[in-house]
C-alpha cells in the first residue's frame, strides 16, 4: 500500500504549502502553573482516587510486606502474583516469616504459560509505580521485563506500591522530570482507579474488564 502512502503525503504537502497555516505558540504555562505544596500532594491524590473507589493502606519502607500480608489475610485473598525480579518482589518474599502467608505466585514465565491461571484463579497482582500525579490522582505505571503489563490488568485486585518521594503536580511535570520522551518503554500507563463504566444508563459500576479493586500501598519515606 505504499502507493497510498505516497499519494497521501504528496497531497498533504501540496495543499498545505498552498495555504500554509500559522499556528499560535504553544504556551504550556497554564499547565505549569498547576502546583501543590509538597504536603498537599498525597492528600489530594488520596481524595481524588478514593472518590473513584481506590483503597489506601499506609506503611513504611520496612513494614510494607507485613501490612500487605495482613491486608490480604483480612480480605481473604488467597493468591498474589508478583514480580520476583524486582526489589519489591524480593522484599515481599523475604518479609514472609512474620505474617500470614498467602500463596505467592511469581510472574516468571511468558503470559502464554500463565494465561489460564491469570484469568481464572489468581486473585491479586502487585506492582510498583514510578510515582503519582496530584492534579488528577493518577499512578504512573512503568511495566518492564521483570514487572509485566498484565500484572496490573488481569487479577481482580491490583495492589500498587507508591513511594511518597515521587509525587508530581502534573502529568507534564512527571514526563519532563523523568525524561520520558528519551526512553518510552513498550507500555507506560496512568492508572487513576479500578476499572469502571457508566455505559448502562450513566450508572457507575466498578470492575468491568480490568481490576475490580485498586489498592494503593503508600510507603511513607
Amino acid at each position: 500500500m505504499s502507493d497510498a502512502r505516497n499519494s497521501i503525503l504528496t497531497r498533504l504537502r501540496a495543499t498545505r504549502d498552498a495555504h500554509p497555516p500559522t499556528p499560535p505558540a504553544s504556551d504550556f504555562a497554564p499547565i505549569e502553573a498547576k502546583q501543590w505544596a509538597a504536603e498537599e500532594r498525597l492528600p489530594r491524590i488520596r481524595r481524588l482516587m478514593e472518590a473513584v473507589h481506590t483503597e489506601f493502606l499506609d506503611a513504611t519502607k520496612a513494614d510494607w510486606p507485613q501490612v500487605l500480608r495482613e491486608f490480604l489475610a483480612r480480605e481473604g485473598v488467597g493468591s498474589l502474583l508478583y514480580a520476583p525480579g524486582t526489589e519489591a518482589g524480593k522484599q515481599l518474599v523475604e518479609g514472609g516469616e512474620r505474617g500470614p502467608i498467602p500463596t505467592l505466585i511469581p510472574y516468571d514465565r511468558p503470559l502464554e504459560d500463565l494465561k489460564p491461571q491469570l484469568f481464572e484463579t489468581i486473585e491479586a497482582g502487585l506492582t510498583t509505580t514510578r510515582g503519582a500525579i496530584a492534579e488528577t490522582g493518577s499512578l504512573i505505571l512503568w511495566p518492564t521485563a521483570e514487572e509485566p503489563r498484565t500484572l496490573s490488568l488481569i487479577p481482580h485486585i491490583h495492589i500498587a506500591l507508591l513511594r511518597t518521594d515521587a509525587l508530581y503536580d502534573t502529568f507534564l511535570q512527571a514526563m519532563r522530570e523523568q525524561g520520558w520522551a528519551q526512553a518510552m518503554p513498550t507500555n507506560a500507563l496512568l492508572v487513576s482507579g479500578p476499572s469502571k463504566t457508566a455505559d448502562i444508563e450513566q450508572t457507575l459500576a466498578y470492575g468491568v474488564h480490568g481490576p475490580k479493586r485498586l489498592v494503593v500501598l503508600v510507603i511513607h519515606q
Binding site: 503470559l111 488528577t136 503489563r149 513498550t186 496512568l190 492508572v191 487513576s192
Partner: peptide, 24 residues
C-alpha cells in the same frame, strides 16, 4: 467528554513485546 478529571487508564504503547518481556 464525561466530566471526569481523567480516565481510569491512559495507555501509552510504543511497540510490541521486546525480547525478554513476558507479555504484550
Amino acid at each position: 467528554a464525561t466530566g471526569q478529571p481523567i480516565t481510569t487508564y491512559v495507555n501509552m504503547i510504543s511497540g510490541p513485546r521486546k525480547d525478554g518481556e513476558k507479555d504484550g
